[in-house]
């Protein structure tokens, strides 16, 4: 039997054992805590059709905000969507800023969508004109059924 050069005394062994057990305990507790706080079931987002307006109420030219309401869990979310009639097409823009998710509003006088949070600006087409947004405003799918306009919203 070959002995190590400095044999460990009882006290040093006990000290290492206690420190090791503390580290082990913290590690196990961290795993338990991480599992505990992670939600087990995360629901898929689904697209729902939300009625917007009568076909006859569409904007002739330009941007108009329409209030829509849709359920999410037990609450009802109310927000605006923007219908834009450009020279060539009609499309719907989501009001959610692509920077960090605040809601933009359309300012007629400046002909821009302005985000109140960090100064993001978009033009009528939803393209970024100024500020931090990394992408243009999201276009939401439009449907027409029995003379009504519907928009597809991810909930």
């Amino acid at each position: 039997m070959k002995r190590s050069p400095e044999p460990m005394d009882r006290r040093a062994f006990a000290e290492r054992l206690i420190k090791g057990l503390v580290v082990l305990g913290v590690a196990v507790a961290s795993v338990i805590a991480a599992l505990f706080v992670t939600p087990r079931r995360v629901r898929e987002k689904i697209t729902v059709r939300v009625p917007v307006c009568d076909v006859r109420d569409l904007p002739g030219r330009g941007v108009r905000a329409y209030p829509v309401a849709f359920p999410r869990g037990e609450t009802t979310i109310e927000r605006n969507v923007f219908l834009v009639q450009s020279e060539t097409e009609l499309f719907c823009l989501s009001p959610v800023c692509t920077h960090l998710g605040c809601l933009v509003s359309w300012h007629w006088s400046r002909e821009r969508f302005l985000c109140p949070c960090h100064g993001g600006q978009y033009d009528m087409e939803g393209n970024v004109v100024a500020g931090p947004p990394p992408a243009p405003l999201t276009r939401l799918p439009l449907f027409t059924e029995n003379g009504w306009i519907y928009v597809g919203v991810k909930v």
């Binding site: 338990i32 505990f36 087990r40 079931r41």
Partner: peptide
């Protein structure tokens, strides 16, 4: 019912 290790904790 829903939380991992909920009953345990």
């Amino acid at each position: 019912r829903e939380v991992r290790l909920g009953t345990f904790v």
